[in-house]
Amino acid sequence: MCRGVVKINRVIQTDELTHKYSLGTPFESTAVDGLSFSVEKGEFIGIIGHTGSGKSTLIQHLNGLLKPTDGYVIINGRDIWSKKVNIKEIRFEVGLVFQYSEHQLFEETVFKDIAFGPKNMGLSQEEIEQRVLDAACAMGIDESWLSRSPFDLSGGEKRRVALAGVISMRPTVLILDEPAAGLDPQGRKTVLSKISQYHKSSGITVLLISHSMDDIVKYADKVLVMENGKLHSFETIEKVFSHSHNLEKIGLDLPQTTKIAMRLKEKGLDLGDGLYTVSKLAQKFLERIGKV
């Protein structure tokens, strides 16, 4: 491991990261298997993979909730399991939002719940207040909600409060485990677009797990594909969808647009590969129509 040449704008780097559950028992199983990848500052990464491929296990390593059985995790140039590093500080640097994060709400008011993270950081009262207001604003939480009980909100609203509870720590990396799962289309759109806006306005690095290809295509720059605990591929969106049959082979869904293009191809209208956004597809289609 050549830790000497770590680039400073490389926020996350893993090296042969391996995690085995129930180590040393008959139930031992490898959930993450020799994963090496790195993420640059400000990137928006989509993580996909079928159920049980180890996505959730992987991300819990990135803020030190799980300790790797083997390999290294390097955040902002520091090996997080070396003796010098305080793991709690890493957790403030790498904000992790779990699946169904609304289950973590516990305080009497929305304000207090969002303030839980900053309070644990030991910040001053004014600083906490400022961060709570900023985070609430970023997640589109109305100021009138702040004094209400989080349990009186709707599912989608609770989800945004939980997200604000992590954003209020002002992490440099934000990791989200299916933040839109179980929400209606409108709720999905709100949550994801708020995250995307926050990414753009703050320059934060985002890792987003999603089962929806359409969401990944819409927001991410690069896609990390996992298969059975191994890294299948880690490439830009264009590259991934230029060989989309590879994704189908490992049982993953394709964006609607790509599916339409493939159907058209089957029917005899070949518009080419790598069509994953509506505008690209429409453009190709119009070109073809114009020619005919």
Binding site: Q60, N63, L65, K88, R91, F92, G95, L96, V97, F98, S101, H103, Q104, F116, G117, N120, M121, G165, V166, M169
Partner: peptide, 13 residues
């Protein structure tokens, strides 16, 4: 387990 992880991620000790 899950809730503990979620709160630890927010800096709870």
């Amino acid at each position: 387990d899950k809730i503990m992880s979620a709160q630890k991620a927010r800096g709870a000790s």
